[in-house]
Design a protein around this nucleic acid. Structure first.
Lengths: 193, 193
DNA sequence: GTCTATAATTCGATAGAC
DNA sequence: GTCTATCGAATTATAGAC
């Protein structure tokens, strides 16, 4: 017997690896094709497993999306940043994240899904309320909630035009051009902390 | 004989009205549900006609989307506006348009479709290049193309978060709050004309 | 745990009567 | 010009063998 009443040891659980492979493939598909155009079959093919495995581990397509939408934005503590540098820190944080992970980034997946899927939209509301708004609140001026909302709108607009719709003029900008031009705008939206 | 070799007189073309009804229903469906989730059957039901009529007049679903994406942004001539007022004029123009037409606005339809449909994305590139970029070029500072692109990103971000994903904090803002908070940001992005 | 087979829908598109 | 009927394809989801 290789495992006790505590359950099978970590090394013996082949299913964990399969589950992880499915989730990874699902994230890529949802991010690049959106919810409706992503098929269980395609996810399974990417993960090189049988489609029925996806159903077994995640129940249905909606729950698979749900599992893929677990996101930690990992926002920096802006109160530790000098007020004058906060706008640039925010712009650089998201830009770095997106440039690093490309279309595989979980926030882009969430954004794309939220446009056509109500459940994904609600997840985005929750993430905004629990992660973005609090992080920006300490960095914003009067009516911090208003400012946090509009800063998010501007950053998501960048994500939308650069990585999803890929408007050439925006997609071809260098990261430094974006930082240089967008930072004053975010600064203005945040107001004088 | 009520019509000549020039074709039937305008009053006799019942089909024009049917075509227009279909297009109107299609715009609403595409705008609220996106391309994939919009069905020919639903469009026909909204227009209270038979689904086969949609096929007869528009050929297929892709061509119906194409017909629905004919958009005139009707941007104001910013060179006639004092430099200091241009940012506010731009913000008010789009806000007025969206608040008036709600989710039926053609630009929102285009935005929603472009996220999951490559053809719609290309249409958005074309509209940006032919209408938005030229209109903003005269109002922007050095590197006008960069500034025009990022202004568009910010405005589309507003449309996305307020009308499509409907993040509560953004959706609940009053138009005047948006103008007051976003104008300085757009001003900063445009640079000193 | 993994795979085969298939049920049950849904939809785009076509053919043809009237 | 309008509608009925239906085909064929694709997909989610399930049942059950091994």
């Amino acid at each position: 017997m290789t495992h006790s009443i505590d359950g099978p040891p970590a090394a013996a659980r082949r299913s964990d690896r399969t589950k992880a492979l499915i989730l990874e493939a699902a994230r890529r598909r949802f991010a690049t094709h959106g919810f409706e155009r992503t098929t269980i079959r395609a996810v399974a093919a990417d993960a090189e497993i049988d489609p029925s495995m996806v159903m077994r581990y995640y129940g249905n397509k909606a729950q698979l999306l749900d599992a893929a939408l677990d996101i930690d934005l990992d926002l920096p503590d802006l109160s530790a940043v000098p007020a004058a540098d906060r706008a640039e820190a925010v712009v650089r944080h998201f830009l770095h994240r997106w440039e690093r992970d490309g279309t595989g980034d979980a926030l882009l997946l969430l954004l794309r899904s939220a446009v056509t899927n109500d459940h994904a939209a609600e997840r985005m509301h929750a993430i905004f309320a629990s992660q973005v708004a609090p992080a920006l609140a300490s960095a914003a001026g009067p009516e911090a909630a208003v400012r946090a909302g509009l800063v998010s709108a501007q950053l998501l607009g960048l994500a939308l035009t650069r990585y999803i719709v890929r408007i050439p003029t925006v997609a071809e900008l260098s990261p430094e051009q974006i930082v240089a031009t967008l930072t004053p705008a975010i600064q203005a939206t945040l107001g004088q902390g």
